[in-house]
Write a protein that binds this DNA or RNA. Structure first.
Lengths: 233, 233
DNA sequence: TAATTACATTTGTAGGACAAATAAACAAAC
DNA sequence: GTTTGTTTATTTGTCCTACAAATGTAATTA
């Protein structure tokens, strides 16, 4: 009764509220990495909650990399790790099937979108290393999971965008899991790919970004068709 | 002294360790949403730590949406929110400049990659709504931030991938912030875009995915050049 | 002045207490 | 016998106190 009279968001615990307050406090006051925070007891008094509640909230911020703390030195603002939170839930065993399918598609989208950055930032050294990977795979009849990771992983690396590379690394286990499910359901993938890794390499070396985009699409066509064929909107 | 003798990762607090243990426990034992967890005191006894430590760890999992808890009912596994963690650090004021630049580019990559999904899933209703947006913008001399969001946001929506849509929404504030910085540094954007929203719409309606990819690239060229020109690798 | 030592402060961890909520068991009324 | 109301027990949420470990600060001494 009292709860519903106070407002609509009454499901929030003290910890939730303190967490929000602290984050807003840090952002609104322009805290930068290295800046020191008030100590725990002070925060608790100011917010009129127990130190336990404050510590639970701070524990969350610490997990996100937003703050760091050392004995006696107190707490300081830190550079948050962009993926600290997401990497802890990025697992096929706990994500919803919808989420997994979305992430499968997200990886395809990323792969299609990197062309411009590849062509803008590729170096001769990169191309040599990629060529070595391609040559190593040339004799093989079919490519293993590791072969795929090696080739495409090198591409991500060549984009010069480390956040993008990390993000893709997070995505891969889910992508792999979803695709294995497709295979188990009878999707065929054994026909030779009309655009091989070697073809992609050639385009990357001598072609244009536009050509590469189209080549990558053909290379990924099997994946696109598996995720798009089941649609019934 | 004792710490360094025990191993290399001695900077972990009890809370960090318990958090890891609990997550591994949940994943390794195939916990699914709705499954109930042992209660706090039981966990504390089993792991030989205080209930405080357990609660701090659980508080983190609760923030990620991994678990939920109600009085007396105990704790249950929940469907984690993929972006619960990342959305709390996705702010221009706290992310590193490198992260911001990477995310700026990530959004460009995403925008370039959605073509196949747009063409596979577009509906007549979607096209009508997009056309309405385009017509509304036809008379305007220059497009505002909101105009851009409206058009491109509708595109994300049309991909039929909700995770992707949410991700883009998270990305936008950072994208906008980074681009404003570019503008402040003297980058010019006032020349008329050779591929307008109306042009993109026409291609989406009557063209092919490949044509759309190329059109989108031209449309985004000003953004690409700003982020690529500063490179010096 | 410089080095050392003692002190004070702050986080990390432990443990106890109780309120609120509620599931389960039980009792009562029809 | 079924339904309704009541009691009870359990579990989380919050508060409090205490103390160890670490370490910055100040006092003390050579």
């Amino acid at each position: 009764m009292k709860a519903s009279a106070l407002g609509p968001m009454e499901s929030l615990s003290m910890t939730d509220r303190v967490e929000n307050i602290l984050r807003e406090y840090l952002m609104d006051n322009g805290f930068k990495p290295g800046d020191s925070l008030p100590n725990e007891t002070e925060i608790a008094q100011k917010l009129n909650v127990s130190r336990n509640v404050v510590r639970e909230a701070l524990s969350r911020l610490r997990m996100l990399g937003l703050i760091e703390s050392r004995t006696r030195r107190g707490m300081i603002m830190a550079q948050p790790d962009l993926f600290a939170g997401i990497e802890k839930v990025m697992s096929p065993s706990i994500l919803s099937h919808d989420n997994q399918k979305d992430l499968f598609e997200l990886r395809l989208i990323l792969e299609m979108g990197i062309a411009e950055f590849l062509f803008a930032r590729k170096t001769d050294k990169d191309l040599e290393e990629l060529e070595a990977i391609v040559n190593k795979q040339k004799g093989l009849k079919s490519l293993s999971r590791e072969d795929e990771i090696e080739f495409h992983g090198k591409l991500y690396e060549m984009t010069g965008n480390d956040t993008f590379r990390r993000f893709q690394t997070l995505l891969f286990p889910v992508f792999d899991h979803v695709f294995k499910e497709y295979l188990d359901k009878g999707v065929h993938m054994d026909l030779p790919n009309p655009v091989s890794h070697a073809d992609l390499f050639d385009v990357l070396k001598s072609g244009t970004a536009g050509q590469f985009r189209n080549a990558m699409y053909v290379h990924l066509t099997p994946y696109f068709t598996t995720t798009l064929k089941k649609e019934h909107s």
